[in-house]
């Protein structure tokens, strides 16, 4: 138990400190790196409570793909300068009340969720029954996702697809005068249409472009 507590507190302290550093560090790229550290320590916490599938998916999706693209955008755009302007200007105090309101709301929501969870006794029974049946975390997730919640699951997938198509439509523009490579055209070229043999008379030459 002691070892478990030590690991838990190590990971949670790293998670909280790095979450604070995401907002506190002045360099934007450092912020993203702290965000990644936060994701990793939270996935470690997931694994510690036995939710190994969630922890790994967190690593693959958030750290392996989302954060890479995030880092990509932050590096390409000059976000760093804009952020510095925010810190330098006097107007930054305007954001404080809004931030406070949002964070209070989130805090209250978390309290409500934890309270509701504590006063619902069946959840503990379900927890116990799961631990008695020797079924892995991944299997139980799959059994719930693809039976009871199949419609919700499919709809969330469709929403993501619509968001992706929308983003592509918004940024897509047809440019004219762009030369494109057509593999089929290249491969299907024959010698007859590509090569021409000409008789060249001396001192006269040939005209090639006609």
């Amino acid at each position: 138990m002691i070892a478990h507590a030590i690991f838990f507190y190590t990971f949670s302290i790293i998670a909280v400190v790095s979450a604070i550093m995401v907002t506190a560090s002045k360099n934007t790229v450092h912020s993203v790196f702290f965000l990644i550290l936060d994701f990793i320590s939270i996935s470690c916490l997931f694994i510690m409570i036995g939710a190994e599938f969630l922890g790994m998916i967190m690593l693959i999706v958030y750290v392996g793909a989302v954060a890479v693209l995030f880092l990509f955008v932050v590096m390409m755009l000059n976000v760093a300068q804009q952020k510095n302007q925010w810190f330098a200007g006097q107007q930054s105090s305007r954001h404080i009340p809004i931030g406070l309101i949002i964070s209070t709301l989130i805090f209250v929501e978390v309290i409500i969720v934890i309270g509701g969870w504590k006063y619902k006794p069946e959840i503990f029974d379900i927890n116990n029954s799961i631990s008695q049946v020797s079924i892995s975390n991944t299997h139980s997730l799959g059994q719930i996702l693809y039976t009871d919640y199949i419609h919700v699951f499919q709809i969330s997938g469709m929403i993501l697809l619509v968001a992706m198509v929308g983003a592509i439509v918004l940024t897509f523009r047809q440019r004219s005068g762009v030369k494109r490579q057509s593999y089929i055209k290249q491969i299907s070229r024959e010698r007859a249409e590509g090569v021409e043999v000409l008789e060249v008379q001396s001192n006269k030459g040939v005209k090639l472009d006609d």
Binding site: V29, F33, I36, E52, F53, M56, I57, L59, I60, V63, G64, A65, V68, L71, F72, M75, S136, N137, T138
Partner: peptide
């Protein structure tokens, strides 16, 4: 011998890009 071995392998190999990005930046 973990239950999600293949996911672990996939996760670690997808993190490999960070070394390169960090070095390059």
């Amino acid at each position: 011998d973990i239950n999600v071995g293949i996911l672990y392998l996939f996760a670690v190999s997808s993190l490999g890009v960070y070394g390169i990005i960090m070095g390059g930046w």
